[in-house]
Amino acid sequence: MSETFFELRDVSRYFRSKPSLTQRIVTALGRTGPPPALRAVDDVTLRIRAGEVVGLVGESGCGKSTLARVATGILPPSAGEVFYKGRPVTELTGKDRLNYLLKVQMVFQDPYASLNPRMKVGQLVGEALRVHKLVPKNEVGERTRGVLKEVGLDLGYMDRYPHQFSGGQRQRIGIARALAVEPDFLVCDEPVSALDVSIQAQVINLFMDVRERRGLTYLFVSHDLGVVRHISDRVAIMYLGRIVEIGTAAELFAKPAHPYSQALIRAIPSAVTRRRRAFTPLKGELPSALSPPPGCAFHPRCEHAMPICREVRPPLVQISPDRSAACHLHSTSESV
């Protein structure tokens, strides 16, 4: 039982813009190289243990959603390998591949775009069951009603269309759809960021209830640090396609090691602190993933930037038993 439940090993995902005709001609003539690839996810390694909740945090555009899609098999990785229960998923075919796709389910960010507007709720939730014949035909309805009840939706809604629901209800439908195929790993791509704050809490509680009942494992992608701290066992911080720090939630939030994590955690608004904090917001913007800065991608915005940061990209190294960070502040002692 030593196999890792789920692992991303050196996974990268590039997006290449399609060259225009003129660009292709120029390339063919040998004037320039091919257009640069956008490195949405760059060499990420992440191990997830069964039953654990891993929070994945980062700014908009840092590659969180792409990573989630690579994990669920919606996007193939450009490099690296995804392992599910110890087996590389690219080698899976037929039934095994379908099993991986179904066991690793995704809950999407936008509850308005993630449900087919032309399908009734009952059809939508039971679709995979019907198409893949996962349960006998006469039990599809029963299973569908079961998961709808589990996420707290009235069974009278089965014959309604998605547009007749509120955002929170739609997100519950999305969760029910994922649960219908009995997954053991849920990848949640900012599942509450499109919802009202009052609804967010309800949906997060639903996630936690479901987890307890079904013993699920979560990869919870979010940019809301409060939510992530509340629900995660471990937290990974992403910056420009790379994981810059990963550790247990309690430890990481108490004493962030990477300057970027420090800046993020300093920025959490607090309702209880009375004393004035010295708050220095991060300067500048996320650099373009088309041409990331050399060395450490964070160095242009880092207050601790040293000469080495501009030249050498710091590897993710272990700094304490359950914590790793990618920063020269923590790696210099060993690497030199």
């Binding site: 899609r69 669920t72 098999g73 919606i74 591949r97 379908l98 796709l101 179904l102 389910q105 995704m106 999407f108 960010q109 936008d110 775009a113 993630s114 449900l115 087919n116 507007p117 399908m119 679709e127 995979a128 198409v131 893949h132 999305g174 759809r177 195929v181």
Partner: peptide, 22 residues
């Protein structure tokens, strides 16, 4: 490009099914 198509891919639904019903 909408997420419901990604959801359909995530369920491993056959291409023909996705084209026809989604």
């Amino acid at each position: 490009r909408k997420e419901y198509i990604e959801a359909a891919l995530n369920f491993g639904l056959p291409t023909r099914h996705i084209l026809l019903f989604h």
